[in-house]
């Protein structure tokens, strides 16, 4: 009910209608002190422009890279970031939680 992600999905629609490749990344599961709740989303276009947040800034860079992959392949991906995962730690979810992010192409 208290959804303030108002313009993210509209931006995704507008980008797509303007002919851009677009992906949506959505937090689907969280454990521990994850910074953003399930349902938080990020819209990414094929220029690497993004809107919204899935972690308050910790892993957006990595998500955008994966999203560009999803835009070219069309195959959805489930990403996981957390301190237990060394790679993920490198990209910096330093808040101690774990999050799973579903990345899908808009098409």
């Amino acid at each position: 009910m208290l959804d303030r992600d108002e313009d993210i999905l509209q931006a995704a629609e507008d980008w797509k209608k303007a002919g851009r490749g677009v992906a949506l990344a959505t937090v689907v599961e969280t454990w521990g002190s994850a910074p953003r709740p399930a349902g938080s989303s990020l819209a990414i276009n094929d220029e690497g422009t993004f809107l919204g947040s899935v972690s308050g800034g910790c892993v957006e860079g990595a998500v955008v890279t994966e999203a560009l992959d999803v835009i070219s392949s069309g195959q959805p991906k489930l990403l996981e970031f957390g301190v237990a995962d060394e790679t993920a730690f490198n990209v910096g979810l330093s808040c101690g939680g774990t999050i799973r992010i579903f990345v899908e192409k808009v098409g």
């Binding site: 959804d3 108002e6 999905l9 509209q10 995704a12 629609e13 797509k16 209608k17 949506l24 899908e104 192409k105 808009v106 098409g107």
Partner: peptide, 13 residues
């Protein structure tokens, strides 16, 4: 997400 689904979702919102 289909563009059609996304557009419908945005219209509902």
């Amino acid at each position: 997400m289909d563009l059609k689904t996304l557009a419908e979702l945005n219209a509902e919102r």
